[in-house]
């Protein structure tokens, strides 16, 4: 699995995941609610640059992140310029991109297991509604394990259909994929029960 995490030992890397998420939410809200001011955009841009520099990621990483959302930018600019004055259109696009690039900073500096743990503990208040945080953690782990298995099924089906000379179409592809996956799910359930986890 390709994770977008970039290893490092900066202040941001060492900060607890929950704190980072809260910090991000506060910044995003501040940027949104002060959108009318001419100062917001420059201040936000400086904030983002500072964050990436503190994390030791460098300004090139910001460009990479902006490039990653290029389709969002393109679609936004096209629709906004049709309906809104150019100044407002570019300010809106700038704001969305800034917040998205800032959010990426969390993912870039936090390991996936740490974020999964943070997710699990943030679910604690939902206990009263019958949600079991440890159970959710289990399903998340199991899904990560299962993705390569299902991707393997998909590859097998594609090969088998090419070998038979059948044109690979979504309907003829999806049904065997679902059948194999659901049988795999039954096997997994047996294994879970056998391992005393059921």
């Amino acid at each position: 699995m390709i994770a977008v995490y970039r290893p490092g030992s900066s202040l941001l890397h060492r900060m607890p995941a929950g704190l980072k998420v809260l910090g991000f939410m506060a910044s995003a809200l501040a940027i949104t609610f002060t959108a009318g001011s001419v100062w917001t955009q420059p201040v936000a841009a400086v904030l983002v640059c500072a964050g990436y520099l503190v994390a030791g990621l460098g300004l090139r990483e910001i460009l990479r992140q902006v490039w990653a959302v290029r389709w969002v930018i393109l679609i936004m600019l096209v629709t906004q310029f049709v309906f809104l004055p150019p100044v407002v259109a570019s300010a809106n696009t700038g704001r969305v991109v800034t917040i998205m690039v800032l959010a990426a900073l969390i993912t870039l500096t936090t390991r996936i297991p740490a974020l999964l743990d943070a997710t699990e503990s943030s679910l604690a208040p939902l206990r009263r509604f019958g949600v079991n945080p440890a159970g959710v953690g289990l399903v998340l782990g199991m899904t990560i394990t299962t993705i390569p298995v299902i991707a393997g099924f998909a590859a097998t089906i594609r090969e088998a259909q090419r070998a038979r000379g059948v044109p690979v179409r979504i309907t003829t592809f999806a049904v065997p994929l679902l059948v194999m996956s659901l049988k795999h799910s039954d096997d997994l359930a047996d294994a879970l029960t056998a391992r005393g986890a059921g």
Partner: peptide, 18 residues
Amino acid sequence: SRKVGFVFSNPDAQIVMP
């Protein structure tokens, strides 16, 4: 189920964590 360990034929089906 605690006292008995079970090995299946297909290891893919018994591995549950990443």
